[in-house]
Structure formats: structure tokens, C-alpha cells
Design a protein around this nucleic acid. Structure first.
Lengths: 305, 305
DNA sequence: ACGTCCATGTAGCCAACCTACACAATGCAT
DNA sequence: ATGCATTGTGTAGGTTGGCTACATGGACGT
């Protein structure tokens, strides 16, 4: 019973096609196919099944792939263990993030990286992409969700919460509500909103405000880019829900943030990983840096408040 | 990072010498030595260390060997999983036991073995041998100990309790105490005892009786074989502590058993296994049969009582 | 019907691992 | 003290297992 073959089966479960597995593991599709065939013969029962021109796992195959994850995890723990003995959190770690989290956390993390530890970052649009799926490609995936709602549950991924970021109401300077300490849902009736495109977590909060205030909110625009939304708010074209720690980066002092009371208004920023990758010492080190950075961001915003 | 090499390291931790590992894994010592050398180079730090003409593990080596066990366990779980899919608890299982447990449990177990599942049994003298060490050689090791006292703790072995067997006072027919329902420590003052050789669990109970009764017990003989002890008791040469379920096999009706009150007088019979072997479906099946048989033995003795 | 995309066979090459044998070091016995 | 057995380790060579390159056979879309 060979671990490499089990790993191949697990990759197939994650990526869905022999060719994709071959690409990811730097092999030819033929090699992958052969190894899977050997695994099937060893198992004595079909693990895969042709479907169209592709290949899908049988129940037995899926089940075996799951336990292959356990093997990979314990193996990763072993390597992490001797990395610790060598005190050697070295190597490459890859990371994807949605833009605002990257802007908020990554510069501080990269500054504190110890020598020999390389962090390769990329960003993706959370609206267009299935973020959990990136765990096949990247070691760490920074994703966000509304509090409580975990869209990536049940995929067998390791989830590390990094921080919860409040979503405030962004107002232009001079707005009638700008001198208030906080605002409630009823204060917001009649305002014009700059919204975000569908799928963003902000969407749900706006619906909650509508329910609580008992009125329909008028939505003038829908943008995906936060800086664009802020520029509209500053220009007095409406108000918007903006994440507290990442807003105002472009034009500081021109945007006023007010906490929203009466409604749970925050997003959770988490790190997603495949369980085996989460065990790597280098990855764990980066995660610790991310958590430290997140804590510092939160503290620096709460102290002067 | 190769699993086979890790496995070799773990075998070395268990068996203590390269030659023994080579013998156990059907390889030449040279092959083992080479693989360990590769593993060390991969790890980047010394895992073994010469001591005399032998070889011992360093701290790092021991630590890595421990995590190698986790790998082996998850791997065994995977194979057990697909064995379950095939509904195929087949293969060979090896077992050592001390004589009385084997006499009590094994015939019933072997009768109930499903076809294709082969159980190879052997017996060893618990006094002469280090039973936990047999887990390197056999899949299942049946051992006994006093209640609570687990001499094999901390070796990273899987322990499955099978039953607790009371130790009764064995008397010849016609003995003054033979019509009592039970006996206490003070009743036993002045009796002549047939003891067992050092190291047996019975030893400790006799000391406890001495303490409780406040008198010294006279010990006339010391034997290792239970049947021999019983024959002495029957002959009126003394009394002895005998396990309730396994005594009287040779000459039924000639030996009277009385429960001992006031002193915790029982031995625990357990199965010891290396954790990875414990995960094998065939092994788990045998363990279940052992537990069922043990329960039945206990029940059949308590019902007519 | 054709081209494309996917999985899978076949032949051959290469590397990893093992055996066989030799050798150094250590401990035990006479 | 001096053999002698035992232990671990090097070196040379053979065998096997897994990979690549290329060809084949279905399945889908146009």
C-alpha cells in the first residue's frame, strides 16, 4: 500500500481530472493513470468510474481519498516535527487573498518574515472565484464571510480565524449623521446607498437593515472595488457599508465612519488550508504572523477610539 | 520524505538493532543501514548514534519514530477502510498468550473465526518474558496485570481490556473453610500456602493479605504452573490463590474455590498491540471475538453462582 | 463528420533499492 | 592478551518500479 498513490487519489478527488493531477504533480497523464490503476488492483474494487470523457470517484474512492488526507496530515506533522528540531521554518509558502485583506495584513507579515522563509502572494476577486477551491493551488487562502456563516464547511479544510472586522457606515464629511457617535437602522431610512455587486457579504447586511428599519433602501450604484465606492461616498453621491480597518486608504480624512448598532455588522477574515499543508512548519509560522498582524491591526484601531 | 524509511526508524526504535530490523523486514542489514543514512541526510540532523557495537536513537530520532507511528496508524486505517468496503476481514493474525488465558479464550475464538481469517497462536511464560516486547513480533499479545497497575503504560501501545478475573482461595475438599461462602484475610492466618514464583501478580495479593491480617504467611512451595499448584492443594499440602475461571480444569470437583473479601483480588486480562496493527480489520475482528468470548466466560460463571 | 479533449495503453529508459561481499569496531571468552 | 563472534557500514552490481514519449480509443461540441 503506497502513500504516493493514495496522494494521487486525493489529488484526483480535489482536482477532478487526471490531466489536472498530472499538471499539478509534474507528471504525464499516463503516469497518473497507471498508478491509479495499480491502486485499484491493490484495493480489489473500482475506485474510479468513467463519466463522459472525464473520470469521477466511486464511493469507495472518495472514502479512501478522505483517509488519504489523514495519512498526508500525519506525514506533514512528522516533517514539521523535524523542522522544529532543526529550528528551520524555511521554504516557500504561497498565499491568495482578496484585495482588502492583503492590503491590511500582508505588508506587516512580509516585513517580519525570518530569513529563508519566502511568501509568494497573489490576489483574486472573491466575487468571481470559488475561494475554497484555491486551497488546491495555494498553501494559504485568505477568505471572508459573514459572522457564523461558513460557506466552506464540510469540505474537510482547516479553517483558522484571523480577525473579525466591523463594517461601518461610510459618510461624506458634513453629512447630517457625521457628528453622531453611532447610527441605527432607522437613521438610515431615506439615504441613497452605494452598493456592491451580488455575492459580497455586504449585501446581506443591507437586507437586514431594510428589515429592521421597515423600509426599502434605494441603491444607486453597484461596484466591486472598494476604493471606487469610497470615492462616490466622498463625492456626496450616497453612503455605503465599508470595512473599518481597510477604508479611507486613498483619501484619508475625507471619509467618516460610524458604527452601525442594532445589527450584527461584521465580516470574519479567515485562513483556509488543506489539512496537510496546514501542518507544515513554514505554513504554521506564516499563520502565526498573520494572526499577530491581525491582532495588532485590531488593537491599533481600538486604542485611539 | 518516504514512509518506508520512517517505518524502518520505528522498527529500530522497537527492536533496538539494525540486524533485528533487517531480520524482521526480510532485508539485509546493509539495506537498512543505507536507508537510515538517507533518512538522516534528508532530516539534516543525526537520528542515530553509535553506542558500543550497537546503535541507539537520538532524541530527535525517538521523536521522529513516535510520529512515524501516527503515519503507520493512519495508513493502517486506510487499508482497514477498504477492507471494510470489500467486507473482507481476511489474512493472518498472530497472537501470544500466557497459558491460562489461552486455555480460557482461544478455543472459543478459533471456532468462531470466519473463513479466510487465520489466527496463529503461541504461548509464552509471563514470568520469563517481557510481554509488551512481544508486540514487535505478534499482532496481539494477551497479558495480565493487577487491577489498576499497568506495567506497560507509556510505551505507546494500544491496550484493550478483555476481562477481569477474580482470584479465589483454592482449598482441598474437606478443608475447615470449605463450607464458608467467602473467606477474609484473618481466616487465612496459620494456613500453609502454595505460592508462585516471583513476578507473578499473585505475589502482591499475598503481601496484601499479610498486611491486612497482621501476620506472616508461611509459604511451603513455589511453582509457576497452575495445574501443579492445584494438584498440591488437592493433595492437602496447602492452599493457594487461583484464578476463578481457569482453575480446576485438570481434576474437577476436587478443588473448592472461595471468594476473598476485604482485599481487591483480581487480575485484569488485556490485549496489547502496536497501534498500527490494532487498526487492521483482521486484527480488530479477532479482538472483537476475544471480547465476546471473555464476556461469555464471565457470564457463564456468574449465572449459576 | 470532423477536430478536440480526455483517459489509457505500449515500449523503453532511468533511478532507487536491494543483495552479496568485504571491512572496521566492539565486546566476550578462554 | 588474543581469538572470535557480533554489530554496523561501505562498494559493486543487478533487478524492479515508475516515468516519458508516443499512439490509441471514446465522448463531446460544432
Amino acid at each position: 500500500m503506497d502513500v504516493q498513490r493514495l496522494e494521487l487519489l486525493r489529488e484526483l478527488a480535489d482536482r477532478g481530472s487526471v490531466t489536472a493531477v498530472a499538471l499539478a504533480t509534474h507528471r504525464t497523464p499516463s503516469a497518473v493513470s497507471q498508478q491509479l490503476k495499480v491502486l485499484e488492483r491493490e484495493a480489489g474494487l473500482p475506485l474510479t468510474q468513467r463519466q463522459g470523457r472525464g473520470l469521477v470517484l466511486t464511493d469507495a474512492g472518495r472514502s479512501l481519498a478522505r483517509s488519504a488526507t489523514d495519512v498526508a496530515v500525519s506525514l506533514a506533522k512528522a516533517t514539521a516535527l523535524w523542522d522544529e528540531f532543526r529550528n528551520n521554518a524555511t521554504g516557500d509558502v504561497s498565499l491568495v487573498t482578496f484585495p482588502t485583506a492583503g492590503q491590511m495584513l500582508l505588508p506587516g507579515v512580509i516585513k517580519n518574515l525570518q530569513p529563508g522563509l519566502v511568501l509568494n502572494c497573489a490576489d483574486e476577486d472573491p466575487e468571481l472565484s470559488d475561494f475554497p477551491a484555491f486551497t488546491a493551488e495555494y498553501d494559504i487562502v485568505l477568505a471572508h464571510s459573514m459572522s457564523g456563516q461558513l460557506s466552506w464547511a464540510g469540505r474537510g479544510l482547516t479553517v483558522v480565524p484571523l480577525m473579525t472586522e466591523p463594517l461601518d457606515v461610510g459618510l461624506p464629511v458634513g453629512h447630517p449623521l457625521a457628528d453622531r457617535a453611532w447610527v441605527g437602522p432607522r437613521d438610515l431610512i431615506g439615504e441613497t446607498w452605494i452598493g456592491v455587486t451580488d455575492g459580497y457579504p455586504f449585501e446581506r447586511i443591507l437586507h437586514a437593515i431594510e428589515q429592521e428599519a421597515g423600509a426599502h433602501l434605494s441603491m444607486s450604484q453597484r461596484f466591486a472595488d472598494l476604493a471606487l465606492i469610497e470615492s462616490f461616498v466622498i463625492a456626496g453621491l450616497g453612503i455605503a457599508l465599508v470595512p473599518r480597518y481597510t477604508s479611507g486608504g486613498g483619501q484619508p480624512g475625507r471619509l467618516v465612519l460610524k458604527p452601525l448598532r442594532g445589527i450584527e455588522s461584521e465580516r470574519q477574515i479567515v485562513a483556509l488550508m488543506r489539512p496537510d499543508r496546514a501542518e507544515r512548519l513554514a505554513v504554521r509560522t506564516v499563520i502565526n504572523l498573520l494572526r499577530a498582524e491581525a491582532a495588532q491591526v485590531q488593537q491599533s484601531h481600538s486604542a485611539p477610539h
